[in-house]
Amino acid sequence: MGHVPVIDIGPWWSGSDADRAAVVAAVDDALSSVGFMLVSGHGVPKDVAAQVRSQARAFFALPEELKRAYAVTIAGRGWLPPGVEANAYSEGTQTPPDMKETFAVGADEKTGDPAVDGYWFPDNVWPHEVAELQAVVEDYLARMRVLADELLRICGSALGHEDLFTQHTGHATHTLNLNWYPPLAHVGEVAEGQFRIGPHTDFGTVTILDREPGAGGLQVWTEQDGWEDAPWDPEALTINTGDLLERWSGGRWRSNRHRVLPPQQAHPDEDLVSLVYFYEADHDTVVTPLEPPVGRVSGLEPVVSGEFIKERLDAITVG
């Protein structure tokens, strides 16, 4: 799948002006063409994600009766059990629930408005049964926030204004989903049309994904060939554009469809843990789409970031 490139963004920090410009051009091209890229040179040590993944596995291995104490639904902080989410609903497709469990954390710095804080900045919940989870996840969250802003600065530079987007992320909403995709032996028979995560686009500005390769792994939609396995590089993070950034860019960048395949009969013991960081903007940011020639589509209406995201979160909630 050669049109999902691997881009070394290391020169963005330490290269010459020409090297930085080359990074900007490569990112602009990737987001314009397929909306996905693999990024190396991101500065996040591999052992940081490995520690998060290890602690996440410890949580998911707990008996269900213990995990149940932390159960929430979409947009909550804690354990999202099987059956509460179906991402394909966002496309208007009725499918069985996604075959995964999630532990969700995110932004918790208060605004002082109880209604806003209750939805967008609630307190994170930390299971006492996995005492080390909080420290490693908080470290990972902080690193992802820095990287997400840097990616948006690269995007802004592609449009001639480095802080075009980050001037609206001082108190951004963001969520980290620790996703466990259980093995076939754990979940039982796969229903028709069921996936670990059904076909969808992401909702925010950029998504940063640290994933494990597998037979029941990530696929990306391409106009030329339909669904194809996403490439994987152990040194790289997978980055994709979300719906909000697609709209903000006036359709210049694509928020592309993707899905995670169900567990495969040929690999009944495969289980995977993905670390999925969703970055957005300040909840009250009025996102005014860029007009041509910078954008690609004229006449798109402005949206408010929080309202735009919440509408999509509500759409994938089961029940």
Rank of each mutant, 00 (worst) to 15 (best):
T111E: 09
T102P: 03
A172E: 08
E150D: 04
D139N: 03
W180Q: 08
P182N: 12
A158R: 00
H171C: 06
P114L: 08
W120C: 00
E132K: 13
A172S: 11
E101V: 10
Y140C: 02
L176G: 01
D108V: 05
Q167C: 13
A104I: 11
A131S: 06
L151V: 13
P127W: 04
T111R: 03
G188I: 10
G156L: 08
K110Y: 11
A172I: 03
L176C: 05
Y119N: 12
E132P: 04
T173F: 13
A115D: 07
D113P: 02
L159E: 09
L133G: 01
E109G: 11
N179R: 13
G112W: 04
L147R: 01
A115G: 09
H128Q: 09
H128V: 15
T169P: 00
A135I: 12
F165K: 01
G170R: 15
P122Y: 02
N179K: 06
D123M: 09
W120L: 07
G188N: 09
Y119S: 07
A185P: 04
E138G: 02
V187M: 14
K110T: 14
L184H: 00
A158D: 05
R143C: 09
D108Y: 11
G170Y: 07
Q167F: 03
W120S: 06
H128D: 15
E162Q: 02
K100C: 10
A107C: 15
R153T: 07
L159H: 00
G112Y: 10
L178C: 13
T175L: 15
S157V: 02
K100Y: 12
T111N: 07
G112R: 14
L151Q: 06
R143W: 06
P122G: 03
N177Q: 11
P182T: 11
R143I: 08
P114G: 04
F103W: 06
P127Y: 13
E109H: 08
F121V: 10
R145Q: 15
G170A: 12
T102C: 14
D108M: 06
N177T: 14
V105Q: 01
A172L: 14
F103S: 02
G160Q: 09
V105P: 00
A158W: 02
E109F: 09
M144Y: 08
E129L: 04
W126G: 01
G118W: 15
A115E: 14
I154C: 05
H161R: 15
E109Y: 05
A172T: 10
F103T: 03
V105F: 06
A158E: 04
K110H: 10
A115F: 01
Y119L: 14
E109N: 10
L147S: 04
G160H: 01
M144K: 00
L184V: 05
L151N: 03
A107K: 11
E132G: 10
A107N: 01
D113I: 04
K100A: 11
E150R: 15
A158L: 08
V146T: 13
G160L: 13
L133K: 12
A104K: 09
E138A: 09
A158F: 01
C155H: 00
V116M: 07
R153V: 04
W126I: 07
C155E: 08
D123Y: 00
L159V: 13
L164Q: 06
R145A: 07
Q167M: 12
E129H: 05
V105S: 03
